[in-house]
Structures are given as structure tokens and as C-alpha cells.
Write a protein that binds this DNA or RNA. Structure first.
Lengths: 207, 207
DNA sequence: CGGACTATTGAAGACGTTCAAGGTATGTGG
DNA sequence: CCACATACCTTGAACGTCTTCAATAGTCCG
């Protein structure tokens, strides 16, 4: 493959609330928008099991032979397709891929702790910190703030709570000045404070 | 490497309730005994984030560059060391390793659903089904029964409950004939019944 | 303007926790 | 063999967190 072709990049875009099946032999990196994967119980209870933000590879498990599961867009999405270059041995992208898989793993492990042992406000605080940090690393945070594209129902499905309780929890946190959440915008006035709310140690990483 | 040397296998053994740090450049497969990994909150709340049974590779994440985290033995352990053969390109073991990583991933995803959305008895039922199935696949189940090496406190730390509530939950399940749990031995009289208790669909896999 | 989704609020109650105590089993040392 | 320690299991009572159900209000968008 010539250097020329390296500059050409296959792009896909999707509407909000669309189920994406994995294209044969391809893998996405999200350039714009948010997406997730979820699991259901027979009676309809839903748990979001992974959240994908801009810059994320989606789904990194694709490589290790798991049968690829569907991805649900939460917003409109612009994504680029990476697989050809991976198959052809692009080392930089291979490294990016391994990093993504390793991060996803670590993130999942942290969420097991969060869902198993954190209270409602601890969970919500943790989620906000994680999202801000991931957006920041991807270059989509502006100081204390970043875009925030989740409804309270989606927050509930991430944190294992009901949307009613998420609502009350958020109101409490707003009242205490721990977060500012208006429209599709999140601001964390005091990270250390919010980290305390989330029951994080000083040296605990959130991502 | 000669076929001779393939028969030679490094072995390690550990006492119960021992913290194992990962040996440099090595990886364990458990031959006998149970182990786990856990995470803590600052105030001491504990969540077990992975459970390792006989036959399991421990920890499969070691390969993908995550900084290796400690493993806690729950019982006495006999383990074999695999890494040299992996590094030397033993294809069968490479395949085994990828399969282990992929299974671990899937398992973690299912536990996110369990911790986020299942009730106490659903969680406990799910845990028992998963353990029985994993023991069965590893050749350590005898019909409806298998060894069971967890205290109620450890079940609590796996399921995100308190040991008191685990106790009451198990008693209820015993009274309803959904499980038999005596000493270090588990028996599942009716798998379909227990699967219903765990809120599993007919075609949902537990492992 | 109408329709659909999202946020908010109240009241009641279920589920799981907390605290505290007692009981059982197992192993150890005298 | 008994005394004691330790770990694990069991039970009760009170309480708190979170859910459920239901209704209202706000927002977005064609």
C-alpha cells in the first residue's frame, strides 16, 4: 500500500438510536458521537455494558474472536474504518488497538467494583468523572467541561439504577455544587470534591 | 524444543488466602483449587472482579499489557507455568490463551448485567449456574454436583451483597428446593428451574 | 400544533443493609 | 481429651436506600 492510500480513509456515519452490526472484516473508530453496547434480561431490564466516546475503537473485542455484538448509537456518529490497515500490518494502529483492548478491560473491571459496591451518588459521580477524563484525553474537554450526551434513562442503564432515582441523585449533587449538568453539557467545578463523592482514593485512576 | 521437554512442566503450589504476585514473564494455569482477583474502596468495601477455577488461565490479561494485578488464593492451589512455551510459539497454547481471554471478556460483560440489574436471588442463582458450568467444562462436575469452595462472605463479595443477605437468600433457595449446598459441595437438582430463578432465557449461555 | 421523548415530583413500599448476638464447626495446644 | 481460639453460619429487629407507580411539566422537532 502506498503512502498515498494511507491518507484515504473509509468513513461511515450513522443516525442516533441505530443498531450497528459489525461489517465483515472491519472495525470502527468513532470520530464524532457516542455509542454503547447493552445486555437485556427477559423482562426488559437493560444494562449498558460499554460506552464508546469519540476516539474509541469500537468494538476492540472484535479481534480476539468473540462473536461481535451489536453497537447502539446514542447520538449521530461519524466513524472511520480501520481493519484493512490493521490486517496489512500498520504497527501504529496495532499498538492503538492493543491499548484500546487493555483500557476496555481495565474499565470493565472498575465498573464491576462500581456496580457491586458503590451507592447511587458514588456511581453517578464516578460516571461523570470517567466521562470527563475520557473526553479530556481524546481532546474533547474544555477545562472543567465537556459535552455530555446521555439522558437520565441512559445514565440509569449505565449505573444499574432507575431513571427516577438518577434524577433525584443528580438534583442532590447539583444542589451541593458537586456537578453542573445543563442540556448536553457537563461541568465539574471541583474534581477533588467529586472524586471524594465517588469514593476514590487520591491515587485511583478513573481511566 | 523437543517433544521430551514438552512433558516437563513447571509447577507451583500455594496455600489458602495467599496473595500471589505475577512472576516475571510467566503465567499460571490452575490445576487444582480456586482463586480470585478483587478491588477495594477506601472504606474497605470489597468486590471480587474475577474468579478462577481449575483449568483457568490466570490472569489472561497479563498478555495484553495491562499491569498485572495480584491474585488471591481462596483454597490451596496447584498451578502450572505456561509462559515459556507461549513465548516459544506453542500454537495449541496460544489458542488456549486467546480462548481464555475471550471467555473472560464475555464473562465480565455478563457480570456487569448481573451486578447492575439482577436481584439478590437472581445473582446467587446465576453464580451457582456459572460455577457449575465452568466446573463441568473443566471436567470437575459429577452430574448435578460439583465442589464449591466459597464462603458466604466470598459469595457476597462476588455478588455485591452482604454476607447476611446472602445467607438469607441461600436459605430461601434451599427451602424452595432450587439448590442444595452442603459443606463444600453444590448440587443443582433442576437446572432449568435454577436458570429461571436467575432470569436467564432458554438460550442464554452462562459461560 | 401535536406527538414523543425527557425531566420532575410525590407517596408507598420492597429489598437489602446494619448492628448485634448467638450458634456451630474445626483445628490447636496444653 | 478438653479448653480455647478462630472462622463461618444463622437469627432478629430496625432502618435506609432505592424502586415502583402514577401523574405533571418541560422540551424538541416535524
Amino acid at each position: 500500500m502506498s503512502a498515498q492510500l494511507d491518507l484515504i480513509r473509509a468513513v461511515a456515519s450513522f443516525k442516533p438510536h441505530q443498531l450497528i452490526r459489525k461489517p465483515q472484516g472491519a472495525i470502527f473508530r468513532i470520530e464524532e458521537g457516542w455509542a454503547c453496547q447493552y445486555a437485556l434480561l427477559p423482562d426488559g431490564r437493560r444494562q449498558i455494558v460499554s460506552l464508546y466516546l469519540p476516539g474509541d475503537i469500537c468494538d476492540p473485542r472484535w479481534m480476539i474472536g468473540s462473536d461481535p455484538s451489536e453497537v447502539l448509537t446514542l447520538t449521530g456518529i461519524k466513524a472511520s474504518l480501520l481493519s484493512n490497515r490493521l490486517a496489512e500490518g500498520d504497527d501504529a494502529e496495532k499498538r492503538e488497538f492493543w491499548r484500546a483492548l487493555s483500557l476496555l478491560e481495565k474499565r470493565q473491571q472498575r465498573w464491576l467494583l462500581t456496580l457491586g459496591r458503590r451507592s447511587a451518588s458514588e456511581r453517578v459521580a464516578y460516571l461523570f468523572l470517567e466521562i470527563h477524563e475520557r473526553m479530556r484525553r481524546a481532546g474533547f474537554a474544555y477545562g472543567q467541561q465537556c459535552a455530555f450526551n446521555l439522558t437520565q434513562t441512559e445514565i440509569a442503564d449505565l449505573t444499574g439504577l432507575t431513571s427516577v432515582h438518577v434524577n433525584r441523585t443528580i438534583q442532590g449533587m447539583r444542589a451541593r455544587g458537586q456537578i453542573a449538568l445543563e442540556g448536553r453539557w457537563l461541568r465539574i467545578p471541583d474534581t477533588d470534591l467529586l472524586r471524594q463523592v465517588a469514593a476514590l482514593r487520591r491515587d485511583d485512576l478513573v481511566e
